[in-house]
């Protein structure tokens, strides 16, 4: 803990919430100023006011498309994370399976997932499932790797403790390893939360029938840059919200992490 966090109320609030807010406001002001000072056309770079205007032009449409993207993102993130964690548990249980499949999974991960988007359409079709699969592919690996790292990072003294109590593999797993791994799992979940949005957008750009990705495609075709920016802003807000949701879950589930790591 630094000295700054021990300061009393208002100063801490200013430090934790005030300064970040000020940063955002200043950046927006600078953006606005640049568009006015250099007389930049909204076609090239819309001012913040143009973006808000574009959103207010089609609020229902944008919210609906955002909802679709959010659904794809959330479902894919949930499936990918659960699958990643489950496979990590399987690997922890059986080194045979790990040895056999780990190189394969690493190789699959090395394939740029964006390049698979057209193939997913061939395999699965022009539907939401194909989009969800893209998100799953992106979320799976970081959660797998971080869960494995967490499960294998149990310190020696705790291993020896459970050995000396003759704890079964399952008891050790449930009472020690999985909880010990939680902080690491959350590292993977945070990475996956950002990748999930990317996956959804890649899928929507490839098959632009719905979602904010489709809005970006159609608005750039009609040279409606402010509308594209409105979609981008919604994507950014969605990504940030998902990320902080994971952070909030972490604080609730593993309150002891910050205490022992500081």
């Amino acid at each position: 803990m630094t000295d700054k966090t021990t300061d009393a109320g208002p100063r801490r609030l200013w430090f934790n919430a005030g300064l970040p807010a000020l940063g955002v406001v200043l950046a927006l002001a600078l953006w606005w100023l640049v568009t006015i000072a250099f007389g930049i056309e909204p076609f090239w770079l819309p001012a913040p006011s143009d973006v808000v205007e574009a959103f207010l032009r089609l609020p229902g449409h944008l919210t609906e498309q955002a909802g679709m993207t959010l659904m794809t993102t959330a479902v894919g993130f949930a499936i990918g994370s659960i699958a990643g964690a489950a496979v990590a548990v399987l690997f922890a249980a059986s080194s045979t399976i790990e040895r056999m499949t780990m190189p394969l999974i690493a190789a699959i991960n090395a394939v740029p997932k964006a390049a698979l988007a057209p193939l997913l359409i061939v395999w699965i079709g022009l539907n939401t499932q194909a989009k969800i699969v893209m998100v799953v592919l992106l979320c799976f690996f970081p959660v797998l790797v971080s869960t494995m790292a967490g499960l294998t990072s149990v310190p020696n003294d705790l291993r020896e403790l459970s050995h000396s109590l003759s704890a079964s593999w399952w008891q050790t797993f449930v009472k020690v390893r999985i909880t010990w791994a939680l902080p690491q799992i959350f590292v993977g979940l945070k990475v996956a939360s950002s990748l999930a949005i990317i996956g959804a957008v890649i899928a929507e750009l490839t098959n632009p029938d719905r979602g904010l990705g489709a809005v970006i495609v159609s608005s750039s075709q009609s040279a409606d840059t402010p509308l594209a920016f409105a979609a981008l802003t919604l994507l950014a807000l969605m990504g940030a919200a998902l990320f902080y949701l994971v952070v909030a879950m972490e604080r609730i589930l593993v309150p002891w992490t910050r205490a022992i790591s500081s």
């Binding site: 310190p155 003294d157 705790l158 020896e160 403790l161 050995h163 000396s164 109590l165 003759s166 009472k175 020690v176 909880t179 002891w256 205490a259 022992i260």
Partner: peptide
Amino acid sequence: PRRDVAMVFQRPALLP
């Protein structure tokens, strides 16, 4: 390991 033999380690080895 036996249940009637207990061990105390160099470090407390508590679950945090």
